[in-house]
């Protein structure tokens, strides 16, 4: 929210008694007021959806853990202590120690940073590309549509992980390359979705009116079609985060994503693999973290779909 809108909120809240009253006012007084009221309504609907709320809580906890990792961690995540290797969970080491005597709990916290970093950065790269390709193809139609959608089809012909693996093999292992590879593999479904949305909008009267007023294609696409596609893209992107987290963990597990001694969860799983038969916590804990995070994004995505995109619920 910008400073201007904040001060406006404060002013209106002060003049009408309280923020709650302002949000529940029967008739909105300005477009901004209406938008805030709608947000409020959507938040209330999300609040009444238990599983989505659970998903949101887990995501928030993850974000906090990632942000506060240096404060919450109890040990240095790279410090090896071979005398204290493979210790079961205890008061000293809340989630035990790994094969090099490093504290699993502290590494888990820093691992959250890497996982969220990969998921968020990939989304920031993928969503705009998918939106632009999809809306352009859908609005312009004709050969532009054919060419772009053929390209999308080619990318969709590979399962996500296989394509990401092939790109990583060519680019070399590492987090940056993993992000590039996952992005290259996950933009096409968003483009497809945005195109489908565009096709339902492009014949509407208000688009025809814009055209008659002489608006350029670019203006119509970015000013009037993209905003209409955003709700369904937000839903899709949230669900995608779960898939991205799994792919990133898979790459890490195969030794092609983040490299040891990085505390990325998949990498932790793969380096603890040989000791898993005797020390279950080494693999159980990072795996549970991956499962919970991916589950949270799935639940949140399903909940957001009910709210933002009721047609496909």
């Amino acid at each position: 929210m910008t400073d201007k809108s904040l001060s406006r909120t404060a002013k209106i809240a002060a003049s009408s008694g309280s923020l709650g009253l302002w949000l529940r006012a029967p008739v909105p007084t300005s477009p901004f007021h209406a938008r805030m009221q709608q947000l409020w309504l959507q938040w209330r609907r999300l609040r009444s959806n238990a599983s989505a709320l659970f998903g949101l809580c887990v995501v928030v906890v993850m974000l906090l853990a990632a942000l506060l990792a240096p404060i919450l961690a109890t040990h240095d995540i790279y410090e090896q202590n071979l005398a204290a290797r493979l210790l079961a969970p205890s008061f000293q080491h809340w989630l035990g120690t790994d094969e090099l005597g490093r504290d699993v709990y502290s590494r888990l916290l820093f691992g959250a940073r890497i996982t969220l970093y990969i998921a968020l950065l990939t989304t920031v790269i993928v969503a705009p590309i998918g939106l632009i390709v999809g809306t352009t193809a859908g609005y312009l139609g004709g050969w532009v549509d054919t060419v772009l959608m053929r390209i999308v089809d080619v990318f969709l012909a590979f399962p996500n992980l296989i394509l990401a693996l092939a790109f990583v093999a060519a680019l070399g292992p590492g987090i940056q390359n993993a992000i590039i590879a996952i992005s290259l593999a996950s933009w096409p479904p968003i483009a497809r979705l945005a195109r489908a949305e565009t096709l339902t909008i492009r014949k509407s009267d208000y688009i025809a009116a814009m055209r008659l007023q002489g608006a350029s294609s670019a203006r119509i696409i970015f000013g009037h079609i993209v905003p209409m596609c955003i709700p369904s893209v937000v839903v899709r992107v949230t669900l995608n985060m779960a898939a991205i987290i799994l792919t990133a963990a898979g790459l890490g597990f195969l030794g092609l994503g983040a490299q040891p001694p990085s505390p990325e969860w998949g990498t932790m799983l793969s380096s603890g693999r040989e000791f898993v038969m005797t020390s279950w916590w080494i693999a159980a804990i990072p795996g549970t973290a991956i499962l919970l995070t991916s589950l949270a994004f799935n639940l949140l995505g399903d909940g957001l779909r009910d709210i933002l995109d009721p047609r496909h619920g």
Partner: peptide
């Protein structure tokens, strides 16, 4: 949501 390689290990 579960990573299948992890399910396999467990």
């Amino acid at each position: 949501s579960a990573p299948n390689f992890w399910l396999g290990l467990m």
